[in-house]
């Protein structure tokens, strides 16, 4: 039997040696379909990790079930391929046990928003310091092409031959609604942007939620092509930058303005200038702007990508540890003998 892999790849203990992306590639053959958007996401994660200054043994990748959830096998870090939808709960246990670890959850639109929707919500609201990367391809790939909770209304798939009659969930809106402290979106093929968003997510303290628009070239090919395709994306994506006006377009000549309670697309020119546009504020306490941006969709609007929200809040594991330390300060370190003898006792001679 071959005894390759799973714990025996690369240079073992690193110490202060600077890691490279190769240090994070496991010896397992990557088995996504050729042309799948997952390859690009894997490459960007492997590119970002060495820059974080965290030793390799402190990374844990946790996933559920689905194509994206194969991800941990391809990372030469600690990894746990769990069960459908439950990765955020497993990750919570890991992080609460050892807050020193950099814990990543890899999930998909079916895993994270359908069967595991509940865990996603609650992990986000607790602000557990984990990085949740949701690969959204708007389809069930591993089970060979049924519609997903992010598939558009009317979508024809194997399970909806007459068109889906479910309205889709908006992943960012779900995350914002759950009170997530970091919410972002990027696109699989937009590698530079993806890498920068992933790095921001990794550096954020608290739950980070990143939706990656990911092409499934087998069952839902070109789902994002109309706005994220190489030739059109400059005109149809809105790159969010904190503190900057919402400008988009190849010529940087279009923008987003607030009209009453709605956002509207305007043409920049003599009448309307950048000073009339909404200034992006990812740090706003109230998530109103982030919500509005999350609901902009092609073709009426450009599709925003980047960081929608990044606010600070104590993390779950910090608060947990603080309660323990407070209890120890007040009651003293637990004494088992004393505990067993607590309450009403009596002695039999």
């Amino acid at each position: 039997m071959s005894r390759q892999g799973n714990g025996h790849k690369g240079n073992g203990h690193q110490g202060a040696v600077k890691l490279t992306r190769k240090d994070f590639a496991s010896d397992q053959e990557v088995r996504w379909c050729p042309g799948c958007g997952d390859y690009s996401i894997l490459a960007q994660v492997q590119k970002v990790l060495p820059d974080l200054g965290i030793p390799r043994e402190k990374f844990v990748f946790v996933s559920g079930i689905g194509c994206s959830s194969r991800f941990p096998y391809y990372m030469n870090t600690y990894g746990f391929h769990t069960i459908h939808g439950r990765a955020p709960a497993v990750a919570t246990g890991i992080k609460a046990t050892n807050p020193d670890l950099s814990v990543w959850v890899i999930t998909g639109d079916g895993d994270g928003l359908s069967i595991g929707g509940n865990h996603l919500l609650h992990t986000l609201r607790r602000n557990v310091d984990v990085n949740i990367i949701l690969f959204n391809n708007r389809i069930y790939g591993l089970t060979k092409g049924q519609y997903s909770p992010t598939s558009e209304f009317g979508k024809r798939t194997k399970s909806t031959p007459f068109g889906s009659i479910d309205w889709p969930l908006n992943p960012l809106s779900v995350a914002l609604g759950a009170g997530a402290t970091f919410v972002a979106r990027s696109v699989d093929r937009d590698t530079k942007h993806l890498a920068s968003v992933l790095e921001r997510a990794a550096r954020h303290k608290g739950s980070s939620f990143v939706e990656v628009l990911q092409n499934c070239n087998i069952f839902n090919d070109g789902a994002f092509e109309p706005f994220a395709g190489r030739t059109v994306r400059d005109d149809r994506l809105l790159y969010l930058e904190h503190g900057q006006p919402l400008v988009f377009g190849k010529e940087r000549n279009k923008g987003i303005r607030l009209n009453g309670c709605r956002l509207e697309v305007v043409q920049l020119g003599e009448e309307i200038t950048e000073s009339d546009l909404v200034i992006h504020d990812e740090r706003a306490d109230e998530p109103n702007l982030a919500f509005m941006l999350a609901h902009l969709d092609y073709p009426e609007y450009p599709v925003p990508v980047g960081v929608f929200r990044a606010v600070e809040k104590p993390t779950y594991e910090e608060l947990l540890e603080e309660q323990i330390q407070t209890a120890i300060r007040r009651q003293g370190e637990g004494d088992l003998e004393k505990l067993l003898h607590s309450g009403y006792t009596w002695t039999v001679e």
Partner: peptide, 9 residues
């Protein structure tokens, strides 16, 4: 996790 050199899945 956290133990150097024992990374595994």
């Amino acid at each position: 996790p956290g133990t150097p050199g024992l990374e595994h899945r």
